[in-house]
Design a protein around this nucleic acid. Structure first.
Length: 110
DNA sequence: AGAATGACGCTGA
DNA sequence: TTCAGCGCCATTC
């Protein structure tokens, strides 16, 4: 896995790292933040390739539906995300839903 | 090179 | 509000 382009994954991680504790952001938000509007899916890949444990608060990134993106490919890391969010004071429903409208992080410049 | 996949987003029913 | 379909683009086979 050559480093190909400096940037995309790293940019995503950097943007995610900018999310303050106790706040939430959507994939589309991160994509737009790094200048890749419409590439919300690629943000997902960047986080999927993210080695754990990591310094990146990837658990603060959820989908626009206000739910944790659960997938069989994650081997349960999605549930870890729920635990981490609960630890930050964000109430997460058993179905993975959370009050995104209330904890939505407003990126700088917007 | 072409087709299938996916940690998404939006609109419509 | 919940479910289904279509569009988006990079990665993978």
């Amino acid at each position: 896995m050559a480093p190909q382009q400096p940037g995309f994954d790293q940019r995503v991680w950097q943007a995610v790292a900018a999310i303050p504790s106790g706040r939430l952001a959507t994939y589309g938000q991160i994509a737009e933040l790094i200048g890749a509007y419409g590439c919300a899916r690629q943000v997902g890949w960047a986080l999927r390739r993210l080695p754990l444990p990591s310094d990146v608060p990837w658990h603060r990134v959820v989908n626009a539906q206000g739910r944790i993106a659960m997938s069989p490919s994650r081997e349960g890391s999605d549930w870890i995300q729920r635990e981490l969010l609960l630890a930050e004071g964000i109430p997460v429903d058993a179905a993975g839903r959370l009050p995104l409208r209330q904890f939505r992080w407003l990126p700088p410049g917007r």
